[in-house]
């Protein structure tokens, strides 16, 4: 479904991605883990066309994305819940969702909003509240909800668990699984919370300094001693695990 081959991305002279190969299959959840500054966010943003890759190819459902502009790419069935949530702060929750549906057919709007409210009931209560006044967890739910409103085939999630309480993290991860299983949406999940991410994902990639150094089944990666040492702090199985880098 999504295929990256030899993708190289630069910020000016600084190279952030050094020939990345990555694959997300139809209906798959794929986790991408790595230390701060490894280039995870850059990879998701490169898929979305900004920054544009300087080399390599990005194919989505057989079509080349590299070189196309962001707003075009976002209309091909990819949705991005970017790092830092990027809610529209002065607009209400419902307006945020409505904006997410800008590229979708208007007749789906009512059912899609209902679906988001079923996944995140708290958003229904807050539907008239301004996005900027939501709590961090609520904003993350809204960011995912807004991404879903465009009816994507592939969902790019950038650190959805960042700064959230363990309960909320579990809720969000359950919802991601739910979206994947019931709607068949493929997910590329960037996470610092490696333990949760690798348990949820079928496959995982490890990004180090702009290069993929390891990849494989989620469970296998979880048991990999290198990963345990680097990302799981000795393999603690609590919710606090995986915050180290």
């Amino acid at each position: 479904m999504l295929d990256l081959r030899g993708v190289e991305t630069f910020y000016g002279h600084i190279q952030a991605l050094r020939g990345v190969d990555l694959h997300v299959g139809e209906g798959e959840i794929v986790a991408l883990i790595g230390a701060n500054g490894a280039g995870k966010s850059t990879l998701l943003m490169t898929v979305c066309g900004k920054p544009a890759p300087r080399a390599g190819s990005i194919r989505f459902q057989g079509k080349e994305l590299a070189g196309r502009s962001t707003h075009e790419i976002m209309r091909t069935g990819i949705a991005h819940a970017p790092e830092g949530r990027r809610i529209f702060p002065r607009l209400t929750v419902l307006e945020n969702l409505q904006l997410g549906a800008l590229t979708a057919a208007p007749e789906h709007f009512a059912t899609d909003v209902e679906r988001v409210f079923t996944l995140f009931p708290v958003l229904r209560q807050r539907s008239g509240q301004r996005g900027g006044t939501l709590s961090g967890g609520e904003q993350q739910m809204l960011a995912i909800g807004r991404a879903l409103m465009s009816r994507p085939r592939l969902l790019l999630l950038d650190e959805p668990s960042l700064g959230l309480a363990p309960m909320i993290v579990q809720h969000i991860f359950r919802v991601i699984r739910d979206i994947n299983e019931t709607a068949g949406v493929s997910v590329l999940l960037v996470e610092q919370n490696a333990y949760h991410a690798l348990r949820l994902a079928r496959r995982g990639y490890v990004l180090v300094n702009g290069r993929i150094t390891l990849s494989g089944e989620g469970a296998a990666l979880l048991d990999n001693p290198e990963i345990r040492a680097a990302y799981l702090e000795g393999g603690a199985r609590s919710d606090k695990a995986g915050t180290g880098a």
């Binding site: 976002m74 809610i87 002065r90 607009l91 904006l99 800008l102």
Partner: peptide, 24 residues
């Protein structure tokens, strides 16, 4: 209408605007 909503979104956050498929 979509154009007006896109304007308000643009006022709030241009990067998020791109991410939801608006042509800034």
């Amino acid at each position: 209408l979509p154009l007006g909503r896109a304007w308000e979104a643009l006022r709030e956050d241009e990067i998020a605007c791109r991410a939801i498929g608006i042509n800034p």
